[in-house]
Amino acid sequence: MTTLKISTVALLLTATAAPVLADEAATCGTVRYSDPGWTDITATNGVAATLLEGLGYTPEIATLSVPVGYEALKNGDTDLFLGNWMPAQQKFRDDLDAAGTIQELVQNLEGAKFTLAVNAPGAEAGVADFADLDAQKDAFDGKIYGIEPGAPANQSIQAMIDADEFGLGDWTLVESGEQAMLAQVGRNANAGTPTVFLAWAPHPMNEALQITYLSGGDERFGPDYGGATVHTLARTEWVEACPNAAKLFGQLVFDVSMENVLMGKILEDGMDAKEAARGWIADHPEVAATWLEGVTTLDGQPGNDAVMAAVSK
């Protein structure tokens, strides 16, 4: 091939590639995802936002309840969700799968659990299983403390009450946000009041409170104390239009220990989620390298170099 021909081919390739990169930057520069108000998802969303900003993207995080968040994903109002807890959210996942417009990018966490638990006074009252609760109804004031209204776990608790399972038909579900619920549990523990509530790991509550997870809830919460995995979902159209950002999220996986640390910094140290994430990423460059393998900045530069430079400022 002559020098003229080689130069012509190079020019053609450059002319072809540049508009594609420009189009992707214009389409994908803002990445939209949601936060249901759970500290674990706030923490992982903060990690994602820190990485995205280091790569030149703009993260846009909307605070939406679980049902509204799934509708937003289904309707194309958001691009991603990092908090698909399974099997607790199976109903929502089935709806998305039926729509055929969403795909799973990765299982981002394993080793999680999610079921009812009691505080120390509750355990001292002899409650270790769902079946132990009703005999102690008066001590517990007939209340089960849940999280925000509309959450699938609350729906499972309410369904259990409605069906009078374990004799709980005359108990009441108290719905509130995660932090309000845990504040109530802590106050009750200090007052010596037995309390049953929705508990999960990862979460620093497991370090801050004496928690006894209850057996017997397999039908509603699954085996192994509601053993769960967490998944990242994305709109198929977004994945196709934004392969670089999608690659990042397909490689973005966490572990329980990491999330406990980040959540503790948010809840106990008062850090912003991105501030906590920047420190963690700076201290664990080897993990960040696996997340960013083959990922570039929005304008096509090496992604890992850009992120590490950003978190080191």
Rank of each mutant, 00 (worst) to 15 (best):
V127G: 06
A128W: 04
E240K: 12
A43V: 07
T27H: 08
E207C: 07
D141H: 09
N188P: 00
G150M: 06
Q107E: 15
S65I: 04
A228I: 00
G83I: 03
F81I: 04
D272A: 13
L198I: 00
L233K: 04
L51V: 12
A10C: 07
Q251S: 10
G192E: 03
T193R: 07
E207H: 11
W85Y: 12
V230M: 06
A276H: 03
G279H: 04
G111F: 04
N304G: 07
M181K: 09
V20L: 13
D299T: 12
T229R: 03
T101N: 14
A123D: 13
A72H: 05
E53A: 08
L109H: 06
N154V: 01
F81S: 11
E71S: 09
A245L: 00
E237A: 14
D94E: 15
G303L: 01
K74F: 10
Q107W: 01
A163S: 10
V307I: 13
C242I: 04
A62I: 04
T195K: 01
W291I: 05
A112K: 04
Q155C: 07
V239S: 12
L198C: 05
L82K: 02
Q155H: 13
V230G: 11
E165T: 09
R93H: 11
G142R: 02
K265R: 12
R32I: 06
L182G: 02
F197Y: 11
G227Y: 04
P149E: 03
A49S: 15
A309T: 13
C28F: 05
E219N: 13
A191V: 01
C28T: 03
S7N: 12
S215T: 14
A234H: 08
D305H: 09
A163T: 02
A15V: 09
A18H: 07
S65G: 13
Q179A: 14
L82A: 14
K247W: 01
G186V: 02
P204N: 00
W280M: 06
L292N: 02
G226K: 00
F197W: 01
Q136Y: 01
A288Y: 00
D218G: 07
V118W: 02
L248A: 10
D40S: 14
G46K: 05
W85V: 15
L252T: 14
A123P: 05
N206F: 03
A18P: 06
E207Y: 10
A26R: 15
D77F: 11
T296D: 15
T14I: 11
M205G: 09
H231T: 14
V295T: 06
